[in-house]
Write a protein that binds this DNA or RNA. Sequence first.
DNA 1: ACTATCGGGACCGCCCGTTAGT
DNA 2: ACTAACGGGCGGTCCCGATAGT
Lengths: 199, 199, 199, 199
Amino acid sequence: MTTQQQRSEETKTHLLQAAELSFAQQGYDGTSVATICRRAGVSKGAFYHHFESKQAVFLELLNRWLDNLDLQLETMRIDTDDIPQGLLSMTGVVGEVFQTAADQLPIYLEFWRQATHDPQILSAMIQPFHRYRVFFAQMIQDGVAEGTLEAVNPDSAARVIISVAVGLLLQGLLEPRSTDWEALPHESIQILLGGLLKR
Amino acid sequence: MTTQQQRSEETKTHLLQAAELSFAQQGYDGTSVATICRRAGVSKGAFYHHFESKQAVFLELLNRWLDNLDLQLETMRIDTDDIPQGLLSMTGVVGEVFQTAADQLPIYLEFWRQATHDPQILSAMIQPFHRYRVFFAQMIQDGVAEGTLEAVNPDSAARVIISVAVGLLLQGLLEPRSTDWEALPHESIQILLGGLLKR
Amino acid sequence: MTTQQQRSEETKTHLLQAAELSFAQQGYDGTSVATICRRAGVSKGAFYHHFESKQAVFLELLNRWLDNLDLQLETMRIDTDDIPQGLLSMTGVVGEVFQTAADQLPIYLEFWRQATHDPQILSAMIQPFHRYRVFFAQMIQDGVAEGTLEAVNPDSAARVIISVAVGLLLQGLLEPRSTDWEALPHESIQILLGGLLKR
Amino acid sequence: MTTQQQRSEETKTHLLQAAELSFAQQGYDGTSVATICRRAGVSKGAFYHHFESKQAVFLELLNRWLDNLDLQLETMRIDTDDIPQGLLSMTGVVGEVFQTAADQLPIYLEFWRQATHDPQILSAMIQPFHRYRVFFAQMIQDGVAEGTLEAVNPDSAARVIISVAVGLLLQGLLEPRSTDWEALPHESIQILLGGLLKR
DNA sequence: ACTATCGGGACCGCCCGTTAGT
DNA sequence: ACTAACGGGCGGTCCCGATAGT
C-alpha cells in the first residue's frame, strides 16, 4: 500500500501548509525556506525535492487558491435563475472565508504584491481575473436580458463588483475587528444593487 | 547663504525619491539600502546620516503620502452642495492619479502589506482611513438629509465607496493597459449611484 | 541469458560516459552527481549502486585512461628499428587523439589537478608517467647506441619529449582552432630532432 | 598619512595573498570565500567590498601573474644580441620561480583549468599567450637573420619552446622532488638548441 | 538493480548598519 | 555633511550521500 507515496504527499502538504501560514504571517520575503522547513518538520533536502525554489511554492499556493476560486464560481453558477438573488447569495461564501481562513488572508496581499514584481506570477493572476470579469459580466448581461437589471455596461459593472469584493477584503485586513465582516459583503452588494440615488 | 543646508536638504530629497521609486518597483524587501544610495548618487553614510534605518525612510514616505491624502480630502470638501455631483467630481482626481503617478502606485501595496506586519505602520494607516470613512459617511448622511440619496446605512455605504476606489486601483496595478483607467472611476461611481436593479 | 547482468553493465557504462563528458566540460567540482545521473538517464540510487562515491568514478575513469595509455605505448614499441623515424611516427597517434577525442581532452587537466590534491590519484598518475619516461629514455639510449642520436642525457631528453607532448596538448586546449593541431606534433618533433642551432 | 587608504590596500593585499595560497593548495572550487577571509583575517563584508565575486579575485590573480610575466619578458628582451645565449639565460629565471614560488605553482594549473570552462578567463589567458608566441617567434627570426639559428618555422618553434616550459612545469607539479628542477630548464633548452639527431 | 525521498551541511552572495576618517 | 571600509550574519540554493521501498 504505497506507504512511500503517501508519506511523500504528506510531506509536500505539510510544506505547503507551513509555507502558507508563514507567508501570511511574515510575508514572502520575511519567510525563509529554513523557517518553512522547521515548521513543516522536514529538512531542506525534502523541500528542494518537492519544489524547485521558494518561488515555486508560492506559485503553487497561488494556483491552488485560484483553482479553488474557479471551483467556487462554478458551483455558484448553477442555480442562478434570479440574477440579483444569485449575486446576493454569493456574498455568503465570501463572509465565510473571512471567518474560516482569517489567518491566511494576508497571503492574498502577497499574491498581489508579488504580481507587480514577478511577470510569472502576474500572468498567473491575470488569467483567472479575466475569467471572473467575464463571469460577472455574463451575469449582468443575463440579468439585463431577464429584465431584472438595469442596462449598464456589463464589463464596467463586473469590475465594480470585483472592486467591492477586493476592497472589502483589504479593509478587513487592516481592521479585522472593526465591523461584522461576515455581514458586510451582503450589505454592500445590496447597496450596489439598489444604488444610492433616491428614486 | 546656508548653501550647506540646501545641499543637505537636496540629498535627503534625492534619497526619498530614490527610495520611493525603488520600493514601488522592487518592493520594500526587494530594495536594498545600497540600491537606494546608488540611485540617489550618494554613499551609505549619507543615508544613515539622514535616516535612522531603512524602515525610517519607509515610514517617512508613508507619512508624506498620508498627509497628502488628508490634503486632497480637504480640497474636496469645499463645494459639495449637491452630494451626488460632488461624488462624481471626485473621481476626476482619482483618474489623474492613475496617470500622473502610475509608477509610484505599487508602493501603496507596500504600505498596505507592511501595515499587516508592523503595528507602527498599521496605526499610521488606520487613522487616515478612519477619517476617509467618516468623511464619506458624512457625505452620505448629508445627501440623505438633502433628499438626493436613499436612506442607506452611511457607514456601510462609505465602505463601499472606498472599496470601489481601492479595488479599481488594485485591478489597475495588475493590468495597467487593459482599460481606460481614467474614465472608469467616474463610470463606476455612476453605476454605484444608480444601482443595478431595474427600477 | 544474463540479460540482467547486461543491463547492469550498460548502466555502468552510461554512467561512466556521462561522467567523463561532464567532468571534461564542467570540471570535477563543477559536476554534480545529479548531473551525471540525469545525463545517464538513471537515478542517484543507481549511481551509488555502481560506485562508492563521486571520487570513485573519477578514479575509475583515470585508471581506464592510464590503462589505455600503457596499451598505446605497447603498440608503439613494436617496430622501432630506426629510432628517429620511430619518434616521428608516434606523432601520428597524438594528432589523431586531438581530433578523435577533442571533447574529452579537458579531463586530462582534471586528472592532473586532482593529482596535486589527492595522494591516491597522484600515485596512480605518477607510475605510468614513470613508465613513459623510462620508455622514451630507453629509445634515446637505443638511438645513441645505434648511432642515430646525439649523446644527450637520455632521461632529460625523455622529459623534453614528454614536455613537448604535454605542452602542445595544453596549448591546444586553450585555442582548439588556432592551428592544425594534427600536423603540429610531427613538426615539433622534427624541430626537436634537428635542433635550433645552425650546424 | 592617509591611514585609511593604506589599511584598505593592506586588506586587499592580504585577501589576494590568502586567496592565492588557498587556490594553490585546495584549488579554486575547494576554496571557500569564508576560508580566504579567515586566512586574511577579515570579514566577508571586507571581501565583497574589495571584490565583486570569488571569480573576480581569481581573475585579478591571473592578471597580476600575466602582467608579471610580461614584465619579465620585457626585461629579458633587452640584452639579447646572441639569440641562443639569450634563450639559455632565460631558463635561469624559470628555475628560480620553481624554487621561490613552489607553493603557488599549482595555481597555474587552476588558471588553465578554469580557462577551459570560463570564457572570461579564457580570453584573459589567450591574449598574453599570443604575445609570448609572437615574442619567441621574433627571437627565432632574429636568430635566423643573424645566422645563429636554423631556418625553422618561427611560429612552430615558438610553440615548442612554450611547450617545453609548460610541460616541465606540469611534470614538476607531479613530482616536486624527483629531479633538480632548477637545472632542468637549462638542460632542456640546450637539448632543444642542439637537437637530437647526430650531425 | 533501481527509484523516490529525505537529511544535514556548506557555499556564495548580499544586506543592514557602524565606524574611522575627511 | 559625507565617504570608504568593514563586521557579522542571514538566505536561497545545491550537493553528497543514506535509507526505505519496489
